[in-house]
């Protein structure tokens, strides 16, 4: 093969890859503009130490009554292996097919039109508790002060509205919580989900939660 041939071949590769990447980028850009947001969160059990800073931040941001929770961290450490600490986030799973939205008779529990996040219109809630009993994860409650049902809504009406991450994610010092848009292919959450095994809670209910869990790996295997 002549020298000239190789040069033109390399040039061709360079040009075509440039064209492909520009083309691909523009395709992605138009996609995100047209399609809806699809927010999701990852809880990484390997990183959570159980400091509960997230719980405190959540209450502060969302004004949750003192003895109630929108999210909390449950200590699931096996007493036989106390050094293998296992924490787990308890909160609304933000189902894609949410039973609470389906059962709400007054459309108070609804999906936010801009962000697709399951959230609550407290004024329309008649507090019938249908959503509370319909939730397969038992993570809804009636707020003692507003007397309306409530769930973790990824801070859609507080932090997210101001362009910030949800309170718990901001407060986490150990990056155990990652929040982002699944429709944004380059988001951090997508990069993590691409390389790590994650799971959904109780997948047998078929509600397709947006909250993903990365379970802790066993030490010393």
């Amino acid at each position: 093969m002549s020298n000239n041939g190789r040069r033109s071949f390399l040039k061709g590769i360079g040009l075509s890859s440039l064209a492909l990447s520009v083309g691909g980028y523009s395709a992605v850009a138009t996609n995100t503009k047209e399609s809806q947001k699809k927010y999701a969160m990852i809880f990484d059990q390997n990183k959570c130490v159980g400091c509960t800073d997230c719980e405190i931040a959540c209450k502060k941001v969302n004004l949750v009554p003192k003895d109630q929770f929108r999210m909390l961290i449950q200590d699931k450490t096996n007493p036989k292996t106390p050094r293998e600490r296992r924490m787990v986030r308890v909160s609304c799973q933000q189902c894609e097919d949410a039973p609470c939205v389906n059962v709400c008779p007054s459309q108070a529990c609804h999906r936010d039109s801009l962000t697709n996040i399951v959230t609550m219109n407290a004024d329309d809630c008649i507090s019938c508790k249908y959503c509370v009993v319909a939730c397969p994860y038992d993570v809804r409650f009636i707020n003692e002060e507003t007397h309306a049902a409530e769930n973790c809504n990824f801070c859609v009406d507080t932090n997210l509205k101001d362009g910030k991450n949800p309170g718990c994610v901001e407060a986490c010092k150990y990056e155990a919580l990652v929040f982002g848009d699944l429709n944004d292919k380059k988001s951090k959450i997508n990069r993590i989900l691409n390389i790590k095994d994650s799971l959904r809670m109780k997948p047998e209910f078929g509600t397709k939660p947006s909250l993903r869990y990365i379970p802790a790996v066993r030490l010393g295997v």
Partner: peptide
């Protein structure tokens, strides 16, 4: 699924419809 990742507490008060 391992037990350590599935939570066992809830936010309701047991029997909500009495």
């Amino acid at each position: 699924m391992n037990d350590a990742i599935s939570f066992t507490v809830g936010f309701s008060h047991g029997v909500e419809w009495g």
